[in-house]
């Protein structure tokens, strides 16, 4: 078990209804995107981070680390928006000459960049709240109620077998590496090819064994099973309403 998956299962609110968590994050994300205001974005980041850290119990250092992942992409994206070709060098905050034209940062482009950065981080914090606090199993149960069964069944099986096949690949890699399979580029390429082939063949064989096991358990073509019990959270519902109403109010006042 690794990464975000692990955090979701360890979250203090992992047992809370997935639907209320989804509502909370999607609601605030839409408000954040709709108003596109720096204040609302900052508020969203603050509320979502607080919810993830205090309600979910995520370690702050881990949360920061995860937030930095999209940050790297955001910065490169924002830089290209902030720095533009400049015609009026007088209005520019900063400029330089390149290939006979002027490039630099203007007041407008800077505010656009900051706005974009905050808005994106706001949306990311909403998504992180959902994914760091909702175990895949609980998310799949939610999907099951709304989407065609076959899609969710596929997702469920894929989710299960990612880990099985990943483990298998890992073991093969270790076995290869212990016999110097990854010494030098040429060896590495050959070993990787072998690994992919072997994993594929093993996966096919496993399919046979799994279908035997399913048959013997009375499989008749559909994966029905009991959904896990989830508790509703008044706190989260209250928070959703409170945040949605106050954010909307602040956004509207700001526009006036």
């Amino acid at each position: 078990m690794s990464g975000i998956d692990k955090h979701a299962y360890q979250s203090k609110i992992s047992g809370v209804k997935a639907s209320s968590k989804l509502l909370f994050s999607v609601c605030l994300m839409l408000i954040c995107l709709a108003f596109s205001s720096n204040a609302i974005s900052l508020l969203t980041i603050a509320v979502m981070s607080a919810a993830t850290l205090f309600l979910g119990g995520c370690r702050p250092s881990k949360y920061l680390e995860l937030m930095l992942v999209p940050f790297a992409f955001l910065i490169t994206g924002v830089v290209t928006i902030v720095i533009n070709k400049i015609t009026d060098t007088g209005a520019a905050l900063f400029y330089f000459r390149l290939f006979g034209s002027y490039f630099g940062i203007s007041r407008q482009s800077l505010s656009l960049g900051v706005n974009l950065l905050l808005k994106s981080l706001g949306a990311v914090s909403c998504l992180y709240f959902f994914s760091l606090n909702t175990p895949m199993n609980s998310f799949l149960s939610l999907l099951r109620r709304r989407t065609p069964g076959v899609f969710v069944e596929l997702m469920e099986l894929i989710y299960r077998f990612i880990f099985i096949i990943w483990d298998e690949a890992q073991r093969i890699r270790t076995a290869q590496a212990s016999r110097l399979g990854y010494k030098g580029l040429k060896n590495s390429m050959a070993s990787l090819g072998e690994l992919v082939t072997t994993v594929f063949i093993r996966a096919l064989r496993r399919v046979d064994r799994i279908s035997l096991a399913l048959d013997s358990r009375g499989f008749e073509g559909n994966f029905d099973y009991l959904a896990e019990k989830e508790e509703p959270s008044l706190l989260l519902t209250g928070l959703t309403v409170l945040a949605a109403v106050s954010f909307t109010a602040i956004g509207l006042i700001e526009r006036l």
Partner: peptide, 8 residues
């Protein structure tokens, strides 16, 4: 792992 097909 052949028998347990669900992640829950």
């Amino acid at each position: 792992d052949d028998q347990l097909f669900s992640s829950s």
